[in-house]
Design a protein around this nucleic acid. Structure first.
Lengths: 192, 192
DNA sequence: GTCTATACCTGGATAGAC
DNA sequence: GTCTATCCAGGTATAGAC
């Protein structure tokens, strides 16, 4: 039963390196070095680099899904749940300043590679988009729930990008406050 | 006098490919193929790949600077100038849907490579940030001009990222409308 | 399941002829 | 200024021993 453990360790290491250095810039040697196995052994667990990417995306999907599920089952109101989403920027502040958003930067990279994994990365956006849409729907914003979801997703992405470009400034905290204020001002009435 | 032309053509081709495929994923052979020269000839014009990157960044800086200078000298009000900035998203809509923001995606990539060019890419953000700050300052927002500049920069970045992820949706136009409405509501009074 | 050794290719970079 | 030929490093992937 040692194999699954190694496989898991590889995914964890690859997940980290893909985030910190990017997918293409990360080599098998890099991952193998961290895991402490030989490059040859790698191919016992993953046939190609794309397979590791797929596994990393699945891992990220599972992680995020678990997080959203927890918020959903915690007895929070929909608004409080959306606030939790916004506060991800604060919880992961140090990493975002250093490497940007793990979802946004991965998508951006794969998009340029015209890589098939682009679809996988988009599923990460979809996960949040659909979940956010549901929350806005519950608030009563039935007609523009998706627009609001996309709006808050975009704001988060932009904040992550600029926080990465200007990591030593108070910008990130300021913007989170603005987003929470925006959320607070949301009323249970549709635009139309 | 043929040399400068070739050099210029190389920069133009590299600029396009770095945007469409990313810096690292673009090879000398790719650029040479478009320009129509041999790989060897390349090194007469640029000693290293980093030198091409520097030239591309300088080119982008000059292009954007010229655009901002034009708006500044066109007799527009500061608000109208900021609106012009926001409408970049519409002017370049097709490209943004296909490849994201040329500045944001370049920065994101170089950031992960811990590349020295990261500083160059940040200068592109700085160019817009300082210019936007000046416009908000002229409106009368002396105390939070920089915050407002960063806010609109971040919004633009986020919109570009998500428009790239969901290119076939009306999202981009919706968000531009929201940003213009936000701008319209700005009053000449400081927060403090 | 893990190792070493190695094949093979791509891509950056150099040398030197024209 | 442009070319061809070539070197070399790094990276994916395979073969086969242990």
């Amino acid at each position: 039963m040692a194999a699954p453990e190694t496989r898991d360790t590889i995914i964890t290491a690859a997940d980290r390196l893909f985030y910190e250095r990017g997918f293409e810039h990360t080599s098998f040697a890099d991952v193998a070095g961290i895991v402490g196995i030989s490059r040859g052994n790698f191919y016992y667990h993953f046939k190609t680099k794309d397979q590791i990417l797929d596994a990393v995306i699945e891992r990220r999907l599972a992680d995020r899904r678990a997080m959203l599920d927890q918020w959903t089952s915690e007895g929070l109101t929909p608004k409080q749940r959306i606030a939790s989403f916004i506060r991800i920027l604060l919880v992961n502040e140090a990493k975002i300043r250093a490497h940007g958003c793990p979802i946004g930067t991965l998508f951006s990279e794969l998009s340029k590679l015209d890589h098939s994994g682009e679809d996988g990365a988009r599923r990460l956006f979809d996960l949040f988009r659909i979940w956010l849409r549901q929350q806005f729907h519950k608030i009563g914003r039935r007609h523009d729930a998706d627009d609001l979801a996309m709006h808050i997703l975009a704001r988060s992405q932009g904040v992550a990008t600029l926080a990465n470009a200007y990591p030593d400034e108070a910008f990130l905290e300021n913007e989170v406050s603005l987003m929470l204020a925006w959320l607070d001002a949301i009323r249970a009435t549709d635009d139309t």
